[in-house]
Design a protein around this nucleic acid. Structure first.
Lengths: 339, 339
DNA sequence: GCTGGCACTCCGCATCCGTGAGTGCCAAGT
DNA sequence: ACTTGGCACTCACGGATGCGGAGTGCCAGC
């Protein structure tokens, strides 16, 4: 009973603080939420919560503010999923359905997410390593220069130019195409290196050097570029919450320019259907110690195509944000999965 | 003689203000730059310059600050081109030479530009409309679904999925490929619509519906997407100069998310070898009235592949920025032109 | 037309309350 | 064992005040 009320107080603090961005005091709390107890009682509970490290006061005799730990408890135990309104769902659907290709899907998703949450949104392109080869094309640009184009089942197109030692005539290019095509078609990208390793030995002698070179180029493309692509939107939303420049905003903007960091944020949360939240110091990147990340994966359960999520101040509407991220990820997953 | 000194004073004001970000007064000016006249004289000149609208004072009895008009005069008549140091040139070259493909070139350029200028950098991908077709590929995904891939001479790859009414067997796909390939190979993209308009009539009856559909899809891809791609970097640099949030930074960040706006900024300055500067209110976008844009085109003179540039506060090191933009554009142009 | 001198303006900074919101603690009530 | 009202205390915030200094405009003299 007592414990229950304390949690209720914490929830009230979080909700009020998220709403007003001002430290919340005992009196206002007792009034606005019908806690049916006096401010004095609330004060006692607050003292206990502060003792436990869930809230803190910016300075003596100011209201209380949730700590990272407080938000964590809120997210884990106190927040109920806030379903989107039918209007929102329809908006998502219709907005995404207008997309004409993969690029467009990703760009639309990221903008949508940024608008819905009023935060910074990040969407990862379908991961190469998790998709498989739909088609391989080889085009000769000049006799000694080949262009390899690889198309994945998610619609991603990767290209790479490759120099061959001797000139390759049309027959050779055609042969190369068929050799690679039949060897790789349908393979998952992670399996490609193993598959092409001993490919040269299986072809006639004349073709061997070409296959070797092309295989090497392909390998290089796959290794040198586990580089996943990302789309970003809504950075302007950062100005909504950040209060000072050099301490808060700059480091975050800098972090957002680092693909590696962003990928890390998304990567650890890649299970579709499961929205993960990382709050403040739970982010191991220093620059993001005052930020929270709400992320999930999209695609088939157990085999995510990529991740998406939003980043905002710890003071954030978690239920709403989580709902939005979840919903968009689902739609995008359906859209790309159906292909 | 008199006129000369006034200009010299203006230059000194601009240089000092860019350096210190503080209104500059007559005394400091007379000391730091060897003008060989007394502060009082400088004051007279300043009064004249203010009269002419080149400088202004934030409040009575503060130093002077250049106006947009003042910067304009400075850029047009007072700034000498500041050549990059050999070290910088080498850095640019080696940094760009590591690029492995078009995407990489663009990404590297934009980061490089942001670092060199410490501003926000924008680079446009080689414009579709100005490049020509190197190769067209058609892949059948499912019998009724074709994937069109178009590769341009700048290395850009555009793709589009296309549904055909009846199923297309391998023979048909091969025919389609050869018809389109021979019709379009080497054509400039702007000429493609005209070329494919009457293509259906030239092929055997059986093939006609397919050609019609595919041609329509291609057209759609070209029309619906004059959409040029852009890369952006260095937004964190905005925090260096902007002083308040909602009035300065937010609108700029918002503007930066609008492709259309960015393209406009670059588009008007697309002549390679010619660096254009747009200062403050010369930008017709309201949000950028306190910003300056330094831009140029890259590629062959008279036939630019795309634009690139940086955006920063009007209080900016114009000579240095212009030199950097110019240099990077040249290298990128060479790199892509050589292909 | 340049220069020194002088009075003037006004920003920035520090200082100084007064106010009020909010707290912690305690003693009394249930 | 909780809850409650009362009370003294703390401290950020905002407005008022005062001061120093940088910078200006103007004028008279060189």
């Amino acid at each position: 009973m007592l414990e229950d009320r304390r949690l209720e107080v914490l929830r009230a603090i979080v909700e009020d603080f998220v709403l007003t961005n001002e430290p919340v005091g005992s009196k206002a709390l007792a009034e606005r939420h019908n806690l049916r107890v006096s401010p004095a009682t609330v004060r006692n509970d607050m003292a206990a919560l502060e003792e436990g490290g869930y809230i803190t006061q910016p300075h003596t005799s100011a209201g209380r503010v949730p700590t990272d730990k407080g938000y964590r408890l809120f997210v884990d135990r106190l927040s109920s999923v806030k379903p989107l309104s039918p209007a929102e769902r329809r908006a998502i659907q219709s907005f995404l359905e207008g997309a004409i290709d993969l690029d467009d899907v990703v760009r639309r998703s990221v903008r949508l997410l940024a608008q819905l949450t009023r935060q910074v949104a990040v969407v990862q392109y379908p991961s190469l390593s998790r998709s498989s080869v739909r088609h391989i094309e080889i085009v000769s640009l000049t006799p000694a220069r080949l262009l390899l184009v690889m198309i994945t089942d998610t619609g991603r197109v990767e290209q790479r130019i490759c120099e061959v030692v001797a000139t390759a005539d049309d027959q050779i290019v055609a042969d190369l195409r068929s050799v690679l095509g039949s060897a790789l078609h349908g393979r998952r990208l992670v399996d490609v290196p193993a598959t092409i390793a001993d490919l040269p030995e299986t072809v006639r002698l004349e073709l061997r050097p070409y296959v070797t070179t092309v295989a090497a180029a392909l390998l290089e493309a796959l290794v040198e570029r586990p580089e996943e692509r990302l789309a970003l939107a809504g950075t302007a939303n950062l100005t909504r919450s950040a209060l000072d420049f050099t301490d808060t905003l700059r480091p975050v903007l800098e972090a957002l320019e680092e693909q590696v960091i962003l990928l890390k944020l998304l990567g650890e949360a890649s299970d579709p259907g499961m929205v993960t939240v990382r709050i403040g110091h739970e982010n191991d990147v220093d620059a993001l110690h005052t930020a929270s990340v709400v992320a999930t994966g999209y695609g088939r359960t157990g085999a995510a195509l990529g991740g998406m999520g939003v980043l905002g101040p710890t003071r954030m509407d978690y239920p709403g944000t989580m709902a939005a991220v979840y919903a968009v990820a689902r739609y995008v997953g359906d859209l790309l999965g159906a292909d």
